[in-house]
Design a binder for these strands. Structure first.
Lengths: 240, 240
DNA sequence: CGCGCTCTTGAGAGCGTTCAACTTGCGTGG
DNA sequence: CCACGCAAGTTGAACGCTCTCAAGAGCGCG
C-alpha cells in the first residue's frame, strides 16, 4: 500500500499524523532536516526552563510531560505515545520549555530545530494546517481538564483519567482492559490534582466493588462501563 | 506612520497581532473575505455545541468565553479583548464550539468562515506562523491554569486571577489599579474554581488589610505588590 | 423609592489532605 | 536461593480548608 520507491525514513514519517497529506517532495523536505535522539528510561529529552531549541515527535517508547512547581510538587500534563509531537508549544513561540519530557521507557524521537520547523511550516501549507489542528486539539483537552478540576470531585476525576488512559494505551486482556504501562498511585494523583493516599483509597473501594483490579504500578479496568457511569453520572441524588 | 494608500479596513487589520508581518497584498486577501458582526451586551457570538463555522477577531467591546457543564455550572475560560482571536480552536479542527462567547458589552468582531480562514492560513505562511504562535501561548496559559488548580489554594488562585486581569485590563487610578470592566464575585469564582462565598470572604479579608478596595462588580488593587507576594510567596510558614 | 441583583457573614458539615505506621511486592547481593 | 532493603501501596485517625445553606445588608436602576 506504500509507494515502493519510498525511502525508509520517508515511509516512516508518512504515517505520522502531523505529516498527513504531505507530498513526497514535502516529506523529503521534512526528512532532510530531521535528526534522531535516543534516551534511556528515566532520562530527559528536555527540562523545564531550558531554552526551547527543538521540536520532537516520538518514534518509539513513551514519554511523560510534567511541570514542577516552585514548591517542588509535580503536575503530570501528558503521556506521549509514538507518533505524537511534543515540545511543540515551545517551538512555536515560547522561548523556554514550560515542562520537562522524561522517558518512561527507553525512547527515541525525531527532532527538528525549532527554527527549522518554523521554516518547514511556512513552506508547507499542509503542515501548517496539520499543526494548527493538533494544537487546537491540545487546547480542547486542556480546557476539558480545567473544567474537570474546577467542577468535579476527586473520585470522578480519577475515573475520567483512567478511562482516558485506557483509550490511549488500553490493552484488552482476559480480566478487562489493562493500562499498558507502569502507572503508580502517585502518577494518577499528579494527573488528577490529588495525592497518592486519596487515589489509593479510591482504587481500594473500586476493587471491593469489582470495578478494577490493581497491583503495583498496574491497573486493570474490569467493568469500564461502570466507570463511565461514575465519570458522567448525572443522576442527582443517589437515594441509596 | 501608516501607508497612506491603506484602505481603512486594511489599516485596521494591520494592527491585529495575528496579522503582523503580512504584506499589503496578503492583508488584502484577508480583508476581502472578512465580514463584520455586532452583538448587544449579553448576546452571543456563538454557543457551546453549535457547529463551528466561524473564526473571530474582536474589533471592539469585550467578550467572555465560558463552558457550561452538564450540571449547569459555568467555567469562565477567558476574557477576550480587542484585537484578540476567539472561536479559533473550533475553526482549526474541532467541529463544534467547545465554549460559548458572550458580549460583556456591546461588541463587534471581524468574522471569517472557518474554511476560508484555513485557506488563508494555507496561502499565507506568515499567518500560519502567527496563528501557531498564538495557539501556543494559549496552551501555555491553560497549562499554567491546570498547574494552579492542581497545586494551589483558593486564596492564591484568586490573587493570581486578579493580577492577570490587572495586566490585561488594568487602569491606573488614584487609589491603585482598577480592573476596568464589570467583574462580580461570581465571575471570579468561575475563573478560579471556587464559589462566590469564598471569593467574597477573601476579598473582605484583603480589604481589611488594605490590599484591595472593592465594590459592586468593581475591584481596585491598592497594593498589587503585596498581592504578588500572596500569589507567589514561597516563605513556608507565615509566623503571623 | 422600591425592587432586584450583588455582596456579606455566620454556622455547620464534609470531602479531602496530612501524618504516621504498617504491609506488600520486587530486585539484588550475599 | 534466601534475605535484605527499598519503593509502592494501604489504612486509620485527625484536622482543616472549603463548600453549602440561610439570612440579611447594600447598591443602583428604573
Amino acid at each position: 500500500m506504500l509507494n515502493s520507491a519510498d525511502t525508509p525514513l520517508r515511509a516512516a514519517l508518512r504515517h505520522v499524523a502531523l505529516f498527513a497529506n504531505l507530498s513526497d517532495a514535502e516529506l523529503d523536505l521534512v526528512a532532510a532536516r530531521v535528526r534522531e535522539k535516543r534516551i534511556e528510561r528515566g532520562a530527559f529529552f528536555f527540562h523545564q526552563g531550558e531554552p526551547a531549541e527543538n521540536f520532537h515527535i516520538l518514534k518509539s517508547g513513551q514519554v511523560r510531560i510534567f511541570q514542577t512547581t516552585p514548591e517542588g510538587t509535580q503536575v503530570l500534563m501528558h503521556f506521549i505515545q509514538s507518533g505524537q509531537m511534543f515540545g511543540a508549544i515551545a517551538a512555536f513561540g515560547v522561548k523556554e520549555y514550560p515542562a520537562s519530557a522524561q522517558g518512561d521507557e527507553p525512547s527515541s524521537a525525531w527532532v527538528w530545530n525549532a527554527n527549522t520547523m518554523r521554516e518547514l511550516v511556512a513552506e508547507i501549507p499542509a503542515l501548517a494546517l496539520n499543526a494548527l489542528e493538533h494544537t487546537a486539539q491540545i487546547i480542547q483537552q486542556l480546557q476539558e481538564r480545567v473544567r474537570e478540576l474546577q467542577t468535579e470531585r476527586v473520585e470522578r476525576r480519577v475515573a475520567r483519567a483512567l478511562l482516558r488512559l485506557a483509550r490511549q494505551s488500553g490493552k484488552r486482556i482476559a480480566e478487562g482492559v489493562l493500562i499498558d504501562h507502569p502507572l503508580s498511585r502517585q502518577d494518577l494523583a499528579e494527573m488528577t490534582g490529588t495525592n497518592l493516599y486519596s487515589v489509593s483509597r479510591i482504587l481500594s473501594a473500586w476493587e471491593k466493588q469489582g470495578l478494577v483490579s490493581s497491583g503495583r504500578e498496574r491497573i486493570i479496568l474490569c467493568v469500564p462501563h461502570k466507570l463511565v457511569i461514575l465519570a458522567e453520572d448525572l443522576v442527582p441524588p443517589p437515594n441509596k
